[in-house]
Design a protein around this nucleic acid. Structure first.
Length: 282
DNA sequence: CTAGGATCCTGTCAGC
DNA sequence: TGCTGACAGGATCCTA
């Protein structure tokens, strides 16, 4: 579930509670969710590669955390913090059925919850993080890449729908289902357009759209995530506030008033304004 | 090599 | 009520 902006928000938010703090015990409740030996240690830094969060320890080891679809990190101490896939777990009694790993810190507990068990925590040598197969394959993030580079990559996937190409982390890193849809809407490009049919100007519009929607999310992420932990169970309002198409099927396009529709592209639910997002013919 | 579909897993919701 | 299938903010593996 979490895409780059959510993971960046988690990185910033969690730092406040676990940076320079020591966890003295780790409890693994689901073996599938943990790869490698059990470790303990003091957190010396939190980094991010695309959607992967890296927690470096003072022992020369690091934890690579990927939340995939339904992962969550929830801090319970004097204060509370929760981020990741929004659900009742943010305010639930923990640990519960979906708790996979428990980190016991001296002044609180960090829970890794993950309904579908697609996420994982992997122990790596800090010196080897960048050589990890997943990390190594990641492409640049939208801010590190220019339109020409992205255009050139599109030419290697001429026949794939542009949405599929945007979701491929080895082509451009950080977008997931929400931001792919939102970036394409911003650029006025239909998700089913073949990547090879786009001209450089359109590719640039997509890249700028991706930067814009993700930056907006990061800039507001803190407050958005904060609402998730309120005791009344209020959900984050990112989608209501910022999404122009995602999960707005049946509602009116903010640009032209046409009805937003939901279709299936690259095996994923895809939201599009059929009037102002065009498929290039060629 | 690319493109597309199945798959991992649990839970929820719509439709019968 | 109970069953069934579709689907889900991700990524990999398998096949053609």
């Amino acid at each position: 579930m979490p895409e780059l902006p959510e993971v960046e928000t988690i990185r910033r938010g969690l730092s406040k509670f676990i940076l320079n703090k020591k966890f003295v015990q780790v409890e693994v409740l689901c073996e599938k969710s943990w790869v490698g030996e059990r470790v303990t240690g003091t957190v010396v830094s939190l980094r991010r590669y695309g959607k992967a969060l890296i927690i470096d320890l003072n022992t020369g080891k690091s934890l690579m955390i990927h939340l995939r679809m339904t992962g969550q990190l929830i801090w319970r101490g004097a204060e509370q913090y929760a981020a990741g896939h929004p659900s009742e777990n943010f305010v639930a009694e923990l640990p519960n059925k979906q708790t996979r790993v428990v980190f016991k810190f001296e002044d609180g507990v960090l829970y890794f919850n993950d309904q579908r068990k697609f996420g994982f925590i992997k122990v790596l040598l800090t010196s080897e993080v960048e050589n990890d197969a997943f990390i190594k394959k990641l492409a640049k993030e939208p801010w590190q890449m220019n339109a020409k580079e992205l255009y050139d990559k599109f030419q290697h996937h001429k026949n794939a729908p542009v949405k599929a190409v945007l979701l491929d982390q080895t082509i451009i890193c950080g977008l997931g289902n929400i931001y792919a849809d939102e970036a394409l809407f911003d650029a006025g490009v239909h998700p089913e357009t073949r990547a090879g049919a786009l001209d450089e100007k359109q590719v640039e519009a997509i890249l700028m759209g991706a930067r814009k929607v993700m930056q907006e999310s990061i800039d507001s992420g803190g407050s958005t995530m904060a609402t998730y932990v309120r005791a009344d169970g209020t959900r984050g309002d990112y989608l209501e506030k910022f999404a122009k198409v995602f999960r707005r099927e049946g509602e009116s396009c903010v640009r032209c008033g046409a009805k937003i529709v939901k279709i299936r592209v690259a095996g994923r639910g895809t939201h599009v304004c059929p009037k102002c997002q065009k498929v290039n013919d060629d």
